[in-house]
Design a protein around this nucleic acid. Sequence first.
DNA 1: ATTAGGG
DNA 2: CCCTAAT
Length: 692
Amino acid sequence: MVFQKRSSLEMESGGGSHVAEMPRVPKSARGKRSIRKKESQGQVMCAFDLLATVAGKLLDEGEGSLGNASSGTPAVEASPKDVRVKQEQCDEEAKHFKNEVMDQDSCNESALVSHIAFQRPVNHHGRKGEDPEGSHAVIEDPKAKSEALDKESSMISCTKAELGCNFAAIADRWSPESVESGAFTGDAAAIAMPATTSGFHKNAPDMYNLLDPMDVDVKPPPLVSSDSTGEMPLYGNKIRRSTSFPRVPKGGAGFTVDRDEDDDDKSSGCTHPSTATNRGFRPNCTAGHSRVKKLLACKHRKVAPARMHKGDLSYSDVDRKPSFRNKKMYYTRQRTQRSTFKRRKMFDRHSAQVSEEYAKANTKFAARDSHAVSLEANKGTNSTAFQKSQESSDCHVKLRIKSFKVPELLIEIPETATVGSLKKTVLEAVNAILGGGLRVGVLHHGKKVRDDNKTLMQAGISHDEVLDNLGFSLEPNCAPHPSQLSPPEDNEFMETVDTTEPLARIAPADSSSKHGEVDASQELALAPLSANYQGSDHDFVHSPGGMSSPDKASTNSRAIVPVTPADSNAGAIVPANKAKRSPEQGQRRIRRPFSVAEVEALVLAVEKLGTGRWRDVKLRAFDNAKHRTYVDLKDKWKTLVHTASISPQQRRGEPVPQELLDRVLAAQAYWSQQQAKLQPKTPPLAEALLLT
DNA sequence: ATTAGGG
DNA sequence: CCCTAAT
């Protein structure tokens, strides 16, 4: 709706004469920003909503046969039609330009490109009027059903588990940083964790760049028009919008192109449940898998031979989870790294902070619904949601446990079994997967069931009871007190890896080092998931060269094993943590030379917005490129200006088309002048007088 | 959080 | 790219 209004406005203004954009409109601009943020929030909610809905459906269907769950896609498709449509548009556009710009493969990128093309039809190879049609208004439907969330909190949690949407959450939990960055996403968000929200927004910047009021009102400055004859005032805007569409429905089907990354990351994970699930489903960690299987198989035989089918399913889950995790982790890391960094500066103890957040999250969780997830503050980490499948007649309690860090497990155990045996069973399975060192805690109705000798029945855990009330937590064996908590980060790592010695071994340094290393890959891995669309920005660290690769998808196949890297350092690092961290933190970001396409986008944006509004430039042209900050853009512009002023022979790196450089100079000159005009508050006359 | 500049 | 100061 808003959108429509704007467009009309735009059109009108376009036709008429326009006032050049003001170089800056600080106040107004900022105010708008806040608005955007709000909107994004709404969207987020929406996404959750959707998720909840889908989950619900899946659950319903799933009960009968889990098999369906994986193919539950239909449900997803059904609801978010709008989203779909948008997505398609995006894709379309992308197709058009892909050929031209191989560089970037993200949807965003393509969008960007297309946008460019539109704006400057005359210049380039005939990609001119591709389609103004994408401009129809986007239908936003940010219905935030917070209440729904509340009511269905239980459902949601279940859902997450069922869908495997957790994967997002899963990975996130591993590193505190992720939490901070808002990676928390899935569950946290779903669960309604205000604390994390802020992070969330951050990552999910607004997809409104296009909608930005500024853009609308602002007409193409003279420069632009002069630059290319047939400018696109009206057109360009429209186009832009259309391009942006995809993002608007961010929450939606998850195809949130732009954001995905990162950012986004966050919502994306949950967003594509079906996809994720399916993809994730790969025989990755065979070793662990078989091992677990064996373990469980034994039990099954003894206990409930008949139910194996379910077990199989869950196993499959196991397989897929790891992969998720890996992907996620990578992704998360990357995303997070930076923020973490900053944080560190601010608080030595960033870890502490994280833990706090964690705690909050946990608390809320618990409060909200007794069932399912419980996080261990000290460990920070493992939360498990479990679901009991309704098996009626026999006295076996079937538990389906989903842990953030641990692959999903399906466990069957007689009601007469003791809590202790239940714990043991779960522990065995978990250990098999993780490689050990974990202790399992059982929570019933939010309370810890400490008496290992009680039977499940005695504890109130019976087959006919709703599973919601049962939860498992993973705890390190040795960790005696949660209170001591080592830095949350570490803990998390630990958990991931081996939980054996939680506190001691984890050193902040470790985690950091890991982060740095893994970083890039994470993103890659993740990308495939969300993938279907993607944004452009995946940064592939490993291939700094710049190209994005289509193969990202293929990438995900990689590792699966839950294993985790972490422990490697852990041992070494035990007590001392201060020294280590600092150095690692200092890591410089990897160098990612701007591609010509990026330069073009930058130039285009600057031509429109001017040189003093990097933040807007970022939003407009690089919203999806998480690795390009406004500072980066500003710096790049600086170098571009410099490059343009030196001889071609002196230039290095990927050659930038002279045409672009010329535009850079033109824009630079134009905006400098503009600035000069506005700046001098002191009228020339006055100046003159003073000088005299 | 952004912007502007120096390094 | 990083780092900082000033907003």
